[in-house]
Write a protein that binds this DNA or RNA. Structure first.
Lengths: 344, 344
DNA sequence: CTGAAAGCGCTTACAG
DNA sequence: CTGAAAGCGCTTACAG
């Protein structure tokens, strides 16, 4: 204590309080102080109280880095998502956080911006933190990412889509089936010239495009000119523009399936600006069922996806792997829900 | 090498490659290997190349915890935001990420969920990681949070609002002025019975309410029954409901100022459902200018806020503090922009 | 139930 | 330009 005060008076850098300081104050060894935290049942109640008291008084804050180094358990999990501005992934994140919350696990969030290169870079960086596990978005990781992850031996779970690999783990839904189902619904409702609007063109989007094509082909209604696919980031503004493009190349469309809700919002606004009645003249549907979709006018027909639960279940699965347990299932299909509303 | 292979054959846990492994392989000391990373100019080019080669071959991944422990510099900054589902804060986050990207700084994200208690808890947890700096949202931290932060000696910058404290640092805008300006604009446009709809009731919202009141009072137009404030989380659905409530208690309103864009979207949808013409019968405006606001029909009058830049500049300011530099300004006012559109 | 001591994987002032 | 050695702050098998 006194030497510490001296230091401060002399203007030296304030040294952080360590376990040793706490132990000295109470007159026990550091290992007993350590145990008072990690295995409290192993230390006499009276002693434990004194130690806890001293930690309080001194304002002791454990040093994670030291603990991680000593235990080679970081209590960190790494999460790689393609976007933070897309509500889909912040919902996934919320599920993850809730699943690991009480355990003192820290979630390291990496934003890959839909880029394989960024993902590669982030895996490298995150691996430096020795994560106990990694949560990945999608299945299409680059060879190098797979190699790094395999070499590290860190358990990994993929989110959003369903894998079929033996040594792999995934939690999600079939993007293809969901899209096929939506398209089938449109056909059953009587729509015959169904366009498809997509942006970003990540793996999920491409699978949705495949689902749409397959359903139309099965019904003998597929027409390639009715698909407008662009790699640009998905926004409401882009949805408005792409609907314009779709109608320019395929003015006879009676429905437009947008690969996500943001694009659908833009498409609906575009219709409103042009005086096109939705759904009477043109039906519009989206994908994901963001909160706004149920409330806008007209309300949006879309596919509900269990994003929060995907994050939650993926984190649970990862925890099992981290603890060396054998999970009941390697691949967890959380399904989807068709939300039929006014826009179709 | 050989002993390592032995270990693997015997099925032992695969040991992580360390700097010592790299050094041994090349035949140098670990400190030279270390320097090849941190101060490459201090090691002979030929040697350096050999070392880099060995790191590649062995798949060496530095251990952040060990480095943090040795240097007492974590290269981590902690960011506390109240929500991840609010685009406002993901924009702030994007600015922060971009500002610290290349430096190998890791951003620890804490979601306080608008709760002082959560914030307190998160500060404690994040402090365990020895962050080099902390970025806080808003000015209203609890006494305990201030104490913990002060005791840790970690540099701190507040985001979103402007502080006036001497030893404090902040980057943001005057929420009061922005709201006052919007209200003044409505008055100038001829609106006389202007309601206010707010949710969440965090500090920023309350300051916006104050700005609205002040402008109306100054014009002799303030009427307390025209304010509807609820603590619930802000959503589009709630905006629709609150507009209903406002019109129930104050049916003579000719404008409704929503404390953020989400509520405004809901309010506009509510009007559309009820056949209330916007802005002819009721003007609606929001706050923040989210991407959709410019595209919806009618487009939304709102206040543009420099969220990305707030995050970016706050991170720059924090870096200066971390490096012991004296920043040019303690408080950076990034202002706001009135976006007058169709809805008013 | 408690303690002495070694070790986790890095970095760094100090010599040479 | 390179190295021997100590230290960062914890934890843990092993004794007692």
């Amino acid at each position: 204590m006194t030497s510490r005060e001296d230091e401060e008076k002399r203007g030296r850098v304030r040294r952080r309080i360590t376990l040793a300081d706490v132990a000295r104050q109470v007159g026990v060894s550091t290992m007993t102080a350590s145990r008072a935290i990690s295995k409290p049942e192993l230390v006499t109640p009276a002693l434990r109280q004194q130690i806890e008291r001293a930690m309080q008084d001194l304002g002791y804050v454990p040093n994670r880095a030291a603990r991680a180094l000593a235990t080679s358990r970081s209590n960190v999990i790494s999460v790689l998502i393609p976007s933070l501005s897309n509500a889909v992934f912040t919902d996934v994140l919320a599920g993850i956080q809730d699943a690991v919350d009480e355990e003192g696990v820290q979630v390291l969030i990496g934003n890959t911006r839909y880029s394989d290169k960024e993902e590669r870079k982030l895996v490298g960086i995150h691996l430096q933190s020795n994560p106990d596990g990694v949560l990945l978005t999608g299945l299409g990781q680059s060879e190098e990412v797979r190699r790094m992850l395999a070499a590290s031996g860190v358990p990994t779970v993929s989110m959003m889509d369903l894998s079929i690999g033996e040594g792999e783990y995934s939690v999600g839904l079939s993007q293809f089936d969901a899209s096929y189902t939506m398209t089938r619904y449109l056909i059953d409702k009587g729509y015959r010239r169904i366009g498809f609007i997509a942006a970003q063109l990540d793996e999920r989007t491409l699978k949705r495009a495949e689902g749409w094509r397959a359903a139309l082909r099965a019904a003998g209604l597929y027409a390639p000119e009715r698909e407008v696919l662009v790699p640009d980031p998905s926004t409401v503004a882009l949805g408005a523009e792409l609907l314009g493009r779709l109608l320019a190349v395929a003015p006879d469309c009676d429905a437009a399936f947008c690969c996500n809700d943001d694009l659908a919002y833009g498409a609906i606004y575009q219709c409103q600006r042009r005086g096109i009645a939705v759904p009477r003249q043109l039906a519009i549907c989206g994908f994901n069922d963001l909160p706004q979709s149920a409330w806008m006018v007209p309300s949006l027909t879309t596919v509900g996806t269990p994003r929060y639960r995907i994050g939650f279940e993926a984190a649970i699965l990862l925890k099992q792997l981290i603890n060396g347990e054998k999970p009941a299932r390697q691949h967890i299909d959380l399904g989807f829900t068709l939300m039929a509303r006014e826009s179709t």
